[in-house]
Design a binder for these strands. Structure first.
Lengths: 205, 205
DNA sequence: GCCTCCCTCCACCGATCGGTGGAGGCGGGG
DNA sequence: CCCCGCCTCCACCGATCGGTGGAGGGAGGC
């Protein structure tokens, strides 16, 4: 019997997962949580075999909750459910210790089978997610921007000129340009606008 | 007895809505559909009192499907479920004839009550959605960009210079600038980068 | 101690952009 | 028919940006 805790801020999705899982005799949904903090608390109390969790939740995000659960409860595994295959949090969640990452759009049996796999100690990845991962691994430099580069880029996105950005951040205009050029280089881009849109696509902004 | 058709591309969400609705004696889920086209066909076949539909679906988007259903089946009402309260499709769906617009994050009883309201011929709006609507109505100019302005803005977002945009669209550089200036004016903005981020926020891009 | 990375700053240049003030053509609605 | 909105284009200007080639200081790792 696989004891499962379901965590999702959407009542509809929660009900859906429960409905899908509960109709199988080998799976028992023992609890539900509507946000990240509640998920951690319920996991602590119920000690389920498995937590099925949304990535985006109020309170604590899916990856934060995952990290805490994995740290406190070594016997509890985490299976992440996400809406978007391009979600920038995929890596974060897996680094936090998630054992699986499935799309909400996946057919019902794939989700049920994912739950069983993870409960057995295996890993469950949606094909689209797996493709994302290998694509990221293929990219040698995962593009990491420094804190300052992100500061500057955020203000660029807000429509500030280099001079104004300098004033806001209490640095010289030359420094702003220097950060921007660094960021352009890292992103493989030649202008501020594309830098902003790309950073947004990558979930960096 | 309210006969309901549920349309959503996510199996999980479909199961959730069905689970929420089916436990009430006055509601009968008579069918399901996994995309917009199937929703229209099933509605045609089953003639339900109500279609509960996601906005974003493959095949036909929620508002297209809504328009078709409303045109063909005057006895069938449509209740839209969305994930994001800032969804740019709110207006489109309501113009297409939807009788309600609820958030997936809404508590279960609010969704059930919404179904009953719409079946009675009333309108059901989540508070957050209603707030969005009045905010839009308050704004005298809803910011509508022309097709050409959007063409240009999309290429700006891709990092193209005005000259390159001109080449791609087979127009002069001066024309590109003229479209951009128009767009800046409409968006209340003074630079291309902010224009792009704002257009993205507004769901125009 | 040394090396690397990040942050800071400077001067200079050509290219591009933002903005002004026009112009004409073309299609739809009153 | 006339007006209005959209699309197209022109010339010109100052401001800003992208890019080069530096420089120094401070924090952290080996």
């Amino acid at each position: 019997m696989i004891r499962v805790l379901v965590a999702d801020d959407h009542a509809v999705v929660r009900a859906g997962i429960v409905a899908l899982l509960d109709e199988h005799d080998d799976i028992d949904v023992v609890g539900q949580a509507a946000d990240g903090l509640a998920a951690v608390e319920e996991a602590r109390r119920l000690r389920p075999d498995l937590v099925v969790m949304d990535v985006r939740m109020p309170g604590a995000t899916g990856d934060e909750a995952t990290a805490r659960i994995r740290a406190e409860l070594p016997g509890t595994r985490v299976l992440i459910l996400t809406t978007y295959e391009t979600d920038a949090t995929i890596l974060a969640a897996i680094e936090a210790g998630a054992s699986g990452y499935l799309l909400k759009a996946a057919p019902a049996d794939e989700i049920v089978e994912g739950v069983r796999s993870v409960a057995r100690g295996e890993t469950a990845l949606s094909p689209a997610i797996a493709a994302q991962l290998v694509a990221r691994l293929r990219a040698p430099a995962p593009v990491e921007l420094t804190a300052r580069e992100l500061d500057v880029l955020r203000l660029v996105a807000a429509g500030c000129s280099n001079r104004v950005i300098g004033e806001r951040l209490f640095i010289g205009e030359a420094t702003v340009k220097s950060h921007l050029l660094k960021a352009f280089e890292k992103l493989g881009v030649h202008d501020r606008t594309r830098a902003v849109t790309l950073a947004m696509e990558r979930g960096l902004l």
